[in-house]
């Protein structure tokens, strides 16, 4: 465990908790894309099936359980508990355009043609684009609450930190996984525009709003 990976995990965990607390405390999921959250629930479910097949560490197992459980809790709050506050009219990204191509790609480009491996690969590909409905929603409404911006920043920086982790591991452990690295790069690139707005606006105390 190197520092980049640990900070990445912490930032990922922070993002999940920020979102849960934001919705729970304000009793509202306004501005949050239910579609992105649904995709993240699918990502965690298909990736962490290895919870049933192998044990790595207490840390690994507990983080996986927390990620899966909190993603389901978030989806439940958006589509059931606080359904009335969900802004479905602005959450119009067509998720089949993400699910179908990533599913096909995971059958074509994977490390091993076995069910668990294909599901793992699918989760890596899907995660890289799962934030698009949320970013689409922000661009459509032209603004995001500051707390939502913090959530997006923590979620985006997590994969960026993982890129440094992979460079580290390649350097010192001679381990690398091209599928994870390429998907991680794609995922990070998708956040670049948002990172720029976050640094130039939100960190200076302004609300994130896009020029019309």
């Amino acid at each position: 465990m190197n520092i980049f990976r640990f900070l990445g995990d912490i930032s990922h965990l922070s993002a999940i908790i920020i979102l849960l607390l934001k919705i729970w405390k304000s009793r509202s999921c306004a501005g949050i894309s239910g579609k992105s959250q649904l995709l993240f629930a699918i990502v965690f479910t298909t990736r962490y099936l290895d919870l049933f097949t192998n044990f790595i560490s207490f840390y690994n197992t507990s983080m996986k359980v927390v990620y899966v459980a909190s993603s389901y809790a978030t989806v439940w709050m958006i589509y059931s508990k606080f359904k009335a506050t969900y802004d479905g009219n602005h959450d119009t990204f067509r998720v089949e355009f993400l699910i179908v191509p990533t599913a096909i790609l995971s059958f074509l480009v994977n490390h091993d043609f076995t069910p668990l491996e294909i599901l793992w690969t699918f989760s890596i590909y899907l995660e890289s684009v799962a934030i698009l409905p949320q970013l689409f929603m922000v661009s459509k409404t032209g603004e995001a609450e500051t707390i939502t911006s913090h959530y997006l920043f923590a979620l985006g920086i997590y994969r960026t930190l993982y890129l440094f982790n992979w460079i580290w591991r390649y350097q010192f452990e001679e381990f690398f996984d091209l599928i994870a690295i390429v998907a991680g790069l794609v995922q990070t690139v998708l956040y670049c525009d948002f990172f720029y707005l976050y640094i130039t606006k939100v960190l200076k105390g302004k609300k994130l709003s896009l020029p019309a």
Partner: peptide, 10 residues
């Protein structure tokens, strides 16, 4: 190339 993820990463 050796696998790293799915084994010990999140």
């Amino acid at each position: 190339c050796k696998r790293i993820m799915g084994k010990d990463e999140l």
